[in-house]
């Protein structure tokens, strides 16, 4: 079957870069004193791209994500999302999906997806419609009335993604969202995520430990070193889209993954 490489639509002028990180460093003050967590991070993500960050545990990638989300302020450097700084969380600009789905167990799936809108005080009818649309996008439109304890791990994460998208932010941050899932579910979810990304045209910044997942999903993979984290390589993944599982067996895929692995190992 012929692969048709899909071109991403041209970026609008004035919104060329969804995320711009310039010279970001962060020193974390813990019990043992000052610990440098990130050093001199420069990162530019054009609108509509799928960027993946990989790195060893503790390299600061979660801290970086928290800063992109406005939950933390770096000790040095600037961060711009959609052209503006992000000193505090702004869910209409940046949606976040954490590793733990962290759905509120006392709310149904639909109520969970509505939650950000309820915080904003949106009217009931609008909230319901919007949330239902998001559940439909992630393939769970008939599960709105279920409680989290009635959902599987993969379904919970899908609800979490729906929640992150409910306010239609142009940027979506994801911190190892599939880490708690088994391998098969992970692969299915990755595929699902690419479909959702394709339909919504968001800019995605995705953190993972898995090199396979990184190469499979990304337009570009940023490789981070161990603490203090710095970006040691930027790997462009020019595999055609839509991605297929068969691509994982190609030489190209293997070479890309090997290149990332070598970089991480070299810095250990």
């Amino acid at each position: 079957m012929q692969q048709v490489a899909k071109l991403k639509p041209q970026v609008e002028t004035g919104r060329a870069n969804a995320v711009e990180v310039t010279g970001v460093s962060h020193i974390y003050h813990g019990r043992e004193g000052a610990v440098p967590a990130l050093t001199d991070i420069d990162m530019t993500v054009p609108a509509g791209r799928f960027t993946v960050i990989v790195g060893p545990s503790g390299c600061g990638k979660t801290s970086l994500l928290m800063m992109l989300a406005g939950l933390r302020t770096p000790t040095a450097g600037t961060i711009l999302c959609d052209g503006r700084p992000i000193p505090s969380p702004d869910p209409q600009r940046v949606g976040v999906v954490f590793q733990e789905a962290s759905l509120y167990p006392w709310l149904t799936a639909l109520d969970n997806v509505e939650f950000p809108l309820a915080l904003k005080g949106s009217p009931r009818g609008e909230r319901r419609d919007r949330a239902q649309a998001m559940l439909k996008l992630v393939g769970l439109d008939s599960f709105g009335g279920r409680y989290p304890h009635e959902l599987s791990g993969g379904m919970k994460q899908r609800v979490s993604i729906a929640r992150g998208l409910v306010q239609d932010p142009p940027v979506l941050l994801m911190d190892e969202p599939f880490a708690a899932l088994d391998e098969q579910t992970r692969m299915t979810m990755g595929h699902e995520l690419l479909r959702i990304w394709d339909e919504t045209n968001k800019t995605v910044v995705f953190i993972t430990h898995s090199l396979t997942e990184a190469v499979y999903l990304a337009d570009e993979v940023l490789v981070m070193s161990a603490r203090p984290g710095r970006i040691i390589d930027r790997v462009a993944v020019d595999l055609p889209r839509p991605r297929t599982y068969q691509m994982m067996a190609t030489d190209k895929f293997g070479q890309l993954r090997e290149r990332i692995w070598q970089q991480i190992r070299a810095k250990e």
Partner: peptide, 18 residues
């Protein structure tokens, strides 16, 4: 009350009262 629940709420811009 799990810290993750609070973090999620903060990431959606919830106030202390909320």
């Amino acid at each position: 009350v799990k810290a993750e629940y609070i973090l999620v709420a903060q990431s959606y811009g919830a106030t202390r009262a909320q």
